[in-house]
Structure formats: C-alpha cells, structure tokens
C-alpha cells in the first residue's frame, strides 16, 4: 500500500508540474480514428478503436504488453503495410484526410507522420548522413547549405548537437544508447513531420537517458503532435496531456491524463493504474 501511495503521490506531483491550463483547453483535433481494426492473418489484434488525438500535445497509449497499443500506433503512419498478412479496417483521418484512401501516397504520409522506435536504430552511416537521409530522399534541401542547416537544427532540437558537433562524420552506431535514440529523434525531426509517433522510445535506455528524452519530448510538444506508446505509467503521467488505456486489443478509456490517473472511470483502468494487471 505504501508503494502504491508513493506512486500516486508522484503522479500527482508530475501532473501538477506539467499542468498548463492553456494547453488543455482548445487544442484542435489533428487525428481521428474510427472503428479501427487490425488482423494479423486470422488473428484479430485490434477491436474497433476510436480516438481523437489533439494537435501540439502529447498523447500517451498505455496498457499491458500485447494490448495492441503499438499496433495501433503503427496504423497511424501505415507501418503495418510492411508486415505481410496484416489487414487494417476502419478509418483514420489526418487533418480530415483518410490516410488509408487508395489515392493517398504512403511516402508522403510518412513524411508528415514521423516515427521513433523502441530500439534505437541508427543507419550504418555517419551521424550527419543519418539526419540528412530524410531530407535527401524527400528533396527538402535545395543545396548543401540548406541541408547543413536542417541537420544542425534537427540535432539541436534533439538536444544532441553539443555532444556530437565534433564528430558528425563518425558512424551513428558508435554513440551511446541514449544518444542513438536522440539521433533517431533528430532524424525524424529533420523531415519536418507534423506528427511524431514514438514506440516505447525509452524502453531500451537507462534512467538518466530516459529523463533526457522525456525532457526533450516535453520541449517538442510545442511544435509537434506527439503520440507515445509506453508501458511505464509514470512516464505517461510525466510527459503526456492525454492518455488512452488499451487492454486486449480494445481501447478501454481515454481522456485527459490527469483524469485517467486520478479518477479512472473504468474498472480495468483502475486495476491497471493500481498495478493489478500488467
């Protein structure tokens, strides 16, 4: 009971520290999902997910492992397309546009909806080339100076520039785990996305690196719509404004992070937050 009390207390603190009433009021809805289902072969992984995701805020998906939160995240930039046998049903709209429409170009979609993965996955290239890769393929820079600027500003935004400015030409795989993950965030930012999806970005990192990334996420939310999947409730409470709770492929409850953590409506959400499932 003591432990639980501590947890709740901590969430309270972080929530109040993060709470900015101005943020909470009128964020326009950026993404809407209606009745999204996903099948892997014969197995159904998601059962009719409907959710609205607000602009310039952090939305956290929480839930026990295997609950479908990552699967849903991967629907938002159609990463499930790359998995053989995956079928997505329902409707997801970005700025009112159906992202599963047949005429929609998935390449263009992914340029707008970036993604950061669970395990840091820098390409086997130099730090510079890692960040420059997105702008290069999308033709975002008109010249070398443009590209340099994009790379530097992205690294700055990711809080990595000071640490790597002398070794931009060294391979990205030589960085530490936390640095690699920030490099991946810089790589995603460099394309200039409007939405950034983060799939348990800190699960492979130590607590210090995690704290740095969480700070970074908090900074980024002023410019980007961020959706983060996490299995850590503390992390959700620390960084997010909206939270959605997934369980067994269903979206159980969603709402302002504060409400979910202090006043969950659903029994299952309560149980999860109290540590009884998961």
């Amino acid at each position: 009971m003591d432990m639980l009390a501590g947890k709740v207390k901590m969430t309270d603190q972080t929530l109040s520290a993060n709470l900015d009433p101005a943020d909470m009021i009128d964020h326009p809805i950026r993404l809407t999902a209606r009745d999204v289902t996903v099948h892997y072969g014969a197995k159904q992984a998601l059962h009719g997910i409907s959710i609205d995701i607000p602009d310039r805020a952090v939305t956290a998906f929480i839930g026990p492992s295997g609950c479908g939160k990552s699967t849903f995240l991967r629907c938002i930039n159609r990463m499930n397309d790359t998995i053989e046998g995956a079928r997505v049903g329902g409707r997801i709209e970005l700025d009112g546009q159906d992202i599963y429409a047949p005429d929609l170009d998935v390449v263009e979609l992914r340029a707008r909806v970036g993604m950061v993965f669970q395990k840091p996955n820098p390409f086997p290239k130099s730090i510079y080339d890692n960040v420059a890769y997105g702008p290069r393929i999308h033709g975002l820079a008109r010249n070398k100076a443009d590209l340099d600027e994009i790379v530097i500003s992205s690294l700055r935004k990711a809080g990595l520039f000071e640490e790597v400015k002398d070794r931009l030409n060294e391979p990205g795989t030589g960085l530490s785990g936390g640095q690699q993950q920030r490099l991946c965030i810089a790589r995603a930012i460099a394309v200039g996305p409007e939405v950034i999806l983060m799939d348990e970005p800190c699960s492979a990192l130590d607590p210090i690196a995690t704290a740095i990334i969480e700070e970074l996420i908090d900074e980024l939310r002023t410019n980007y719509t961020i959706v983060i999947v996490t299995h850590s409730m503390q992390q959700a409470a620390r960084v997010s404004q909206k939270t959605a709770f997934f369980h067994l492929g269903n979206l159980i409850e969603q709402g302002d992070t504060e409400d979910i953590f202090t006043n969950p409506v659903n029994k299952q959400t309560q149980d999860y937050i109290m540590g009884r499932i998961g």
């Binding site: 390449v107 979609l109 992914r110 340029a111 970036g114 993965f117 890769y133 997105g134 393929i137």
Partner: peptide
C-alpha cells in the same frame, strides 16, 4: 528495425533497400 527506421522516414521500398 533498420528497415522500419527508413520506412518511418517515408523512404520508398527501393530507397530503403538501396540506401539502408
């Protein structure tokens, strides 16, 4: 994960194959 990284940036399949 390397492939996913490239797809996530909006690379086409052939770009992913050739560049990553």
């Amino acid at each position: 994960t390397l492939r996913d990284g490239a797809y996530g940036l909006g690379a086409t399949q052939s770009e992913t194959i050739r560049n990553v």
